[in-house]
């Protein structure tokens, strides 16, 4: 279906696609156009020069995302390798347990998380913006990476073991590098997830200096900065560029993660 088409069928398909595209283009372009309303590009310069700590927030977003992605890879990759290739008692039960936590919202643990952060003296610090959200995304990363390690087979493992290599070497030298396609998926989706995250900073950042970009918009709408709508739209455009950009750049390398890892939030 839809591969051998008459001219009329092609026309209908094209028309429906354009209609659907308009439903997406109108709201999205409205944001971009509104960001230039009233004073044009000066909305953007105003955002950076009005005393609003947007540069700090951009830095926070970049730093927190970078740390979250690194932490996720560092923890999830060896775990996924173990669940795929190493035999140890209780393995299946542990894996099942991890998968069952995947769908739970972080919000459900608002009080215990807050108490833990208070105990660690982490409230309004970077670790509090990094660890909880990263941990809650790790099961997804483990699922994506484990599926890929499973597809790699055990021949290399057996050959390396005969040569006396330990599991750490086998993971870090052989299977880790071989899992590059799945790792790219994890990096891209973990980055998008972290860059866009609203809940974690909402719960644990207290001052403007410790806010990430998703909360910048909230600051702009409600605070002393009392920004005009067009400035808020400019901020949205800045926020959207990295996540759309990363997706566009890696579009052709994403497959696995889009179907086995994308989780609605």
């Amino acid at each position: 279906m839809f591969t051998n088409l008459t001219l009329r069928q092609k026309f209908i398909i094209q028309a429906v696609l354009i209609l659907l595209a308009l439903l997406y283009l109108v709201p999205l372009s409205n944001v971009v156009i509104s960001s230039f309303a009233v004073s044009g590009f000066r909305n953007y310069t105003f955002l950076f020069t009005s005393g609003f700590p947007v540069i700090r927030m951009i830095f926070n977003s970049l730093f927190v995302s970078f740390m979250q992605v690194s932490l996720i890879l560092l923890v999830a990759s060896p775990a996924a390798f173990a669940f795929s290739k190493i035999r140890f008692p209780g393995k299946n039960a542990l894996f099942l347990l991890i998968m069952l936590t995947m769908s739970i919202s972080m919000l459900c643990f608002i009080t215990p998380l807050f108490q833990t952060m208070k105990f660690l003296r982490w409230i309004n610090t970077y670790p509090a913006l990094i660890f909880p959200a990263a941990t809650f995304w790790m099961p997804v990363a483990i699922l994506i990476l484990r599926n890929y390690y499973d597809s790699l087979g055990t021949e290399l493992l057996e050959a390396s073991m005969i040569e006396g290599a330990g599991f750490f070497t086998i993971w870090s030298r052989i299977y880790g590098p071989l899992s590059r396609p799945a790792t790219v998926n994890v990096i891209v989706f973990a980055f998008i997830n972290s860059w866009n995250d609203y809940l974690n900073p909402l719960l644990f950042s207290r001052t403007e200096e410790m806010r990430t970009l998703p909360l910048a918009v909230v600051s702009l709408t409600s605070s002393i900065h009392g920004a005009r709508p067009e400035v808020i739209y400019a901020c949205l455009v800045i926020m959207a560029i990295p996540s759309i950009g990363v997706y566009m750049i890696f579009q052709n390398q994403l497959g696995e993660g889009m179907t086995s890892g994308a989780v609605k939030g």
């Binding site: 092609k10 094209q14 696609l17 944001v31 860059w195 866009n196 609203y198 926020m239 996540s243 759309i244």
Partner: peptide, 30 residues
């Protein structure tokens, strides 16, 4: 519709996926 691989299929596919890559904050403000 995208199976037809007509002109612009890649563009449409990317366009329909863009909101998935956006923060809910951006969607809400939009």
């Amino acid at each position: 519709l995208l199976r037809s691989k007509l002109k612009g299929s890649r563009f449409f596919r990317a366009l329909f996926y863009i909101p998935v890559t956006l923060s809910t904050v951006v969607i809400a403000q939009t």
